[in-house]
């Protein structure tokens, strides 16, 4: 039976980009899942800032000055934490 690590608990406590609030800035903490290579190629990397601009079937966000539209399934694989005001 797999044991729960501190890292797993940390990831569980993060919210995914699809759950994040529109109009707020976040920092990407973890990218994990089958689409992570695709996400990284398009500029989603850990530590980078992201602003969520719109929600929906495909959500819109701004990563390093570039607006990207990504499917909800992919956004689910990006774990973020809010940037402090």
């Amino acid at each position: 039976m797999p044991s729960t690590t501190v890292q797993d608990l940390k990831i569980d406590s993060l919210q995914s980009l699809s759950q994040a609030q529109v109009g707020c800035d976040f920092q990407i903490k973890v990218i994990e899942g089958p689409g992570c290579d695709q996400l990284r190629k398009l500029g989603f990397c850990e530590t980078l800032q992201v602003r969520k601009l719109a929600d929906g079937r495909n959500l819109i966000c701004n990563v390093c000055g570039t607006r990207m539209a990504v499917s909800k399934e992919l956004a689910e694989q990006v774990k973020v934490t809010p940037l402090e005001a």
Partner: peptide
């Protein structure tokens, strides 16, 4: 391989 929608929206 599953392909997800991902598109750059240029300025």
């Amino acid at each position: 391989v599953e392909h997800h929608f991902m598109l750059e929206l240029p300025p």
